[in-house]
């Protein structure tokens, strides 16, 4: 399934951040988002996930095909890793959490409460959730934070397997994952500030 963005514009806190994003990510390929802090990487990923409406434009497939993972893992510290994953599997209507545990080497940790894990181990459990969603498009925001080198390569392998099966991944990251990926610098799509509105003209005109 290809991911296509058409003239997409996104806002953060009511202010336009990105505009005129038109691109297509072919099935089986990876798009890496780059740009300095504030360039709109998180805003774009949250828009794709359906957490905020786009300011203009559209994208296909819609949020219902997109699995989103951000800085926070959504793991409950008092539930075990397996219970956490089983919960998300139930929510997303899938059954088997075995492959997810295996892909991120969580077998030995499956019955430990998530609160007892190290930051890197928690991160792995959080990323394993992507596999139980069964969704074709992954939208990942800085997925490798607090992962060690071995875990980063495991993560790379999981992404490679996902796209090899026809999936798509959009990843905001600063490190090289060692995967064939197209890089996109978001600074090129920065929304230009509209000319200052005349007296009394705010808010309707300046926002549109």
């Amino acid at each position: 399934m290809d991911l296509t963005l058409t003239e997409l514009a996104c806002a953060r806190g009511g202010l336009p951040v990105l505009a005129g994003l038109t691109l297509s990510v072919r099935s089986g390929s990876i798009l890496v988002l780059r740009g300095p802090n504030g360039a709109g990487k998180t805003t774009l990923l949250r828009t794709l996930a359906g957490l905020q409406p786009p300011l203009a434009g559209r994208f296909a497939p819609g949020p219902e095909a997109i699995a989103y993972a951000a800085h926070a893992d959504g793991l409950k510290p008092t539930l075990t890793v397996a219970e956490n994953l089983r919960f998300w599997a139930a929510v997303f209507g899938t059954r088997d959490i075995g492959p997810a545990l295996a892909a991120f080497d969580l077998g030995a940790l499956a019955h430990r409460p998530a609160g007892e894990l190290s930051a890197g181990q928690r991160r792995r459990a959080g990323l394993a959730r992507l596999l139980v969603t069964g969704r074709p498009v992954w939208a990942l925001d800085e997925p490798t934070v607090s992962l060690d080198a071995a875990a980063v390569s495991r993560f790379g392998a999981a992404v490679a397997a996902h796209v090899a099966a026809g999936g798509v991944a959009v990843i905001a990251t600063h490190i090289d994952l060692g995967l064939p990926a197209r890089a996109l610098d978001l600074t090129a799509f920065r929304a230009r500030a509209a000319p200052l509105p005349a007296a009394g003209g705010f808010p309707d005109e300046a926002l549109s």
Binding site: A49, L51, H71, A72, G74, W88, V91, G93
Partner: peptide, 16 residues
């Protein structure tokens, strides 16, 4: 609690 650990974001993007 769900908002702080990100679970609310994930629930909002879930098919539920």
């Amino acid at each position: 609690t769900d908002a702080e650990d990100g679970a609310l974001d994930l629930l909002a993007t879930a098919p539920l």
